[in-house]
Structure formats: C-alpha cells, structure tokens
Design a protein around this nucleic acid. Structure first.
Lengths: 231, 231
DNA sequence: ATCAATGCTGACATTTTTTGACAGTATGAC
DNA sequence: GTCATACTGTCAAAAAATGTCAGCATTGAT
C-alpha cells in the first residue's frame, strides 16, 4: 500500500475510535513499525488534522479535520452562492479561489439536490467595475490581520508624498471601488486608513503587535462612531 | 508538497470544477508532469474516487466519494464571511437574514477556533450606498426563479410609461446600485432586463413557464455574448 | 478520412521519500 | 521509582515517485 493510501486509512481508523488508541495498536493495525506510525501522525498533523497524543494514553482525533454533513435552506444556499460570487468577482485572485473552493467543499457535504442549486442559483453578480490597481498582495495583509502581526509599508498620501510606516493592521474594508486597510499607525500614533492602491511596498514582519486586534478594533469603532452590529 | 497532500489538493480541484478538466490543466495547476498526474488519478481511483476520464474532454469527479472534504481553510472561511457580509449589507432583508443563518449553521459544525474566525474575520464590507428604492418583494422574484413560475408585473420604462407584462424570470443580477431581473417577456417575445426599482407591482402566479430555466439562460447568455464561466 | 485534443500505458534512469532499527528523552499515572 | 506511552535523531537500505520519451486508443469536429 502506498503511503498516501495508508494515511487515509489512518484517518479512518482514528475517526472510528473515540477512546485514545496507542500508537502500537495503530502501527500493528496498519502493518508498519511504531517509528513510521509516529511519522504518519506527524504528517497528518502537518496537513491540519487535529490529532492529540498524550503520553501514557494514546491518540485521539478531535473533530474538525473533515467537514461534517450539513443542511441549508434554499434561501441560505442562495445567500452563500451570491456572496461567494461577489467575492469571486470583486476581490483578489486568491480570495476568489478560496470562495470557489469553499462552495465546492460545501456542495460536497450537502444533499445532492441542495448542492445542485448552489450552481444553478439564479442570483448573478455583475462583473467587477474599474478599480484602481492594487500593486501589493492582499493575501499578505489578510495573513497579518489574522496573526496580529505588524506590517512595514510605503504609503503615498493624497498629495503623493511617500512615507515609510509600521502599521498594525486591524481590518480590510471593501468599498465599491477601493479597498482600505484599517490600522494603528506607529508613525502617527493613531488609527489611520490606508487605501490599498496607494501602498507601493509591503513587508510582512513576524513581530506581533502589543494589543489584541479585537479590542483595538472596538476602540477604532468607538472613535469612528461605527455601529457594532455588523454581521 | 508531499504526495499525500497533493492528492487531497487534486480532489479539491476536481470538486471545484464541474465541467471536464483536461489532465494538462490539472498537471500545470499542481506543478507536476502529465505522466505523474495520470498516476495520481489512478491512485485516487484505486482509493474509490469516482473520477471519470473521457478522451477529448477531460476529467470529472462524480459526487458521492466517501472521503469528505477537508475542513475549510482560513482563506475559505474569510471568503464566506466576506461574501455573507456583502449579502447582509447589500441585498434585501430576507436574504440578509438567510446569510446570517447560513453562517450560524456553518459555525455550528465547525470546530471552535475556526468558527470564531467566521465572526472575527478582519474583512469588512462598506455600508450600502444609495440605491433606488425597490418597492417590490424580491423574495417573490427569487421564489419564482427557483420554481420556474411566471410573474405578472407592472413596469415603468425609461420614459416612465407603465406596461403590464407577464415575464419568465431567469435570474436576478446584482449591480452596484441596481438590481435587474433577467427574463423572457411575453409582451415583447424576447429577453428583456427589468430594473427592480421600476417595477411597481408584482404578482406571483403558479403557472410554470414552458421551458427549462437553465436552457433559456444559456440562450440568453449566447445572445448577450456573456461568458459561460462565471462561478 | 483526417486531424486535434485528450486519455492512457510501458520502460527506465534518476531523484526523493519512506522505512525500520536502535538509542535515546520526556511525561503523566500510580 | 516504574510503567506505559509519546516523541526525536540518525543512518543505511529499500521503496516509491518522478520526468522523459515513445507510443496506442478514443472521441468529436471538419
């Protein structure tokens, strides 16, 4: 059996057992050595499988590696399909691909007839209007937002004056024509909004910023007077 | 990338495409040679994946493969969250509610940390811009599209002249500021586009229109020269 | 009938990965 | 401490994966 096949088997075995299983048991069941089993577990974990191993006990798979079956109403399906179409048309390539992938995954866990209506939904999104060129990779921004990492950017203000800044990115806001990064700016010592099309250079740092994103965002909302109750 | 990871990727790519995809395309996307792709396909088929290859066409994955898709990635979660926010801000109340409900259902089947990032995603949608008032209930239109039912409407054209028409609604298209119903118009005997804000009265009938929506839509696309390959 | 696009197979040298064996360390329960 | 277990490092042998090349087969279009 090829290793790839064995890894799938291992997943199945782990899904079967609710109690911890010892590595030795798994190794025997798969017909491999204990050392190889440890390597297989490590590989699955690297793929994102939530396998927990405790010395003296064994392994358990915490749910969440595979997507469970799901049921959605017709309206809900259409809402997701339409939203994803917006993302596919109006955001950057990478997020567009993610939207397609998400729908494909969902459609695989929905009952057949419901899944079909994902494709066939009668809600269409107009093609993207002209938007200023964004020269930076927004995936870097999204990643930094998730990780609460600082970013170094070169930003041209309205007058065209370029400054180098270190910012703490809090959110990425989508308007009809522009995308704006909401951030704390170290240079100015305050919240600032940066249009993505005016950023000429961006460098991800691995430095975490010293406060929690959600509380900074709440503070920003307070200052801007923005209603909390967004979806 | 390890082979095991690549095989999962391949499954996902196949899930994403509903039309046949050529082996060459898949190989390029995965960064491997065509020969290796054929081997990968063979491996997946040996595992039980229902992949069909037709000479001259390409590959399609028939649904129902036992291996459910992997959990949604961070990007996919953000894409869904952002898309749903768009729907919540920019569509009508009922669809907005459906978007929220869909996210809630998803949230319920996702592991805790992933579910949290649905809410806390740093992607925000700007509030709805000024749009002409839509006086009709778009839920009626969506329902008619799904059921392939005729609608009776009172429509004011650009000059303000109101006509009563019976239409076969095919799709509802979302532009930045207006929503347009794509339909076959019985009065004119052709495809017409109706801005939702110019419809003053709408009545759902329970009469089914005499052709299939998807084939009418394909014909409309052909006439309008619209690319088939929208999400 | 021909052609182009595509699926599919075999062979083989090369490269990469996988594997088991052995020797350790670490951790938590008792 | 002892035990059961998880984990890691190293290394050489074995196995698998890979790309290239050379071909055949099937389908649909012209």
């Amino acid at each position: 059996m090829s290793r790839a096949a064995r890894l799938l088997d291992l997943m199945q075995i782990l899904r079967r057992h609710r109690r911890p299983v010892s590595g030795a048991t798994l190794a025997t069941e798969l017909g491999i050595s204990l050392r190889t089993l440890y390597r297989d577990i490590a590989t699955l974990q690297a793929e994102g499988a939530d396998i927990e191993g405790e010395p003296g006990l064994g392994y358990v798979l915490r749910p969440g590696f595979l997507l469970p079956p799901l049921m959605l109403s017709a309206d809900e399906i259409e809402a997701l399909a339409l939203g994803s179409r917006w993302v596919a048309e109006r955001s950057d390539d990478r997020l567009a691909m993610a939207a397609r992938n998400a729908l494909a995954k969902l459609s695989a866990v929905l009952p057949r007839d419901v899944a079909d209506s994902l494709d066939q939904s009668g809600l269409m999104m107009a093609a993207r209007p002209d938007t200023p060129d964004v020269r930076i990779d927004l995936a870097v921004v999204r990643q930094a937002i998730r990780a609460e990492h600082k970013l170094d950017i070169a930003y041209a203000d309205q007058a065209g004056v370029v400054t180098d800044r270190t910012i703490w990115p809090l959110a990425l806001a989508f308007f009809d024509h522009v995308r704006v990064i909401v951030a704390w700016c170290e240079l100015r010592g305050g919240f600032r909004h940066f249009r993505a099309d005016r950023i000429s250079r961006i460098v991800a740092t691995s430095k975490r910023y010293p406060q929690r994103r959600l509380s900074l965002l709440a503070e920003w909302r307070r200052q801007e007077g923005i209603d909390e109750n967004r979806l």
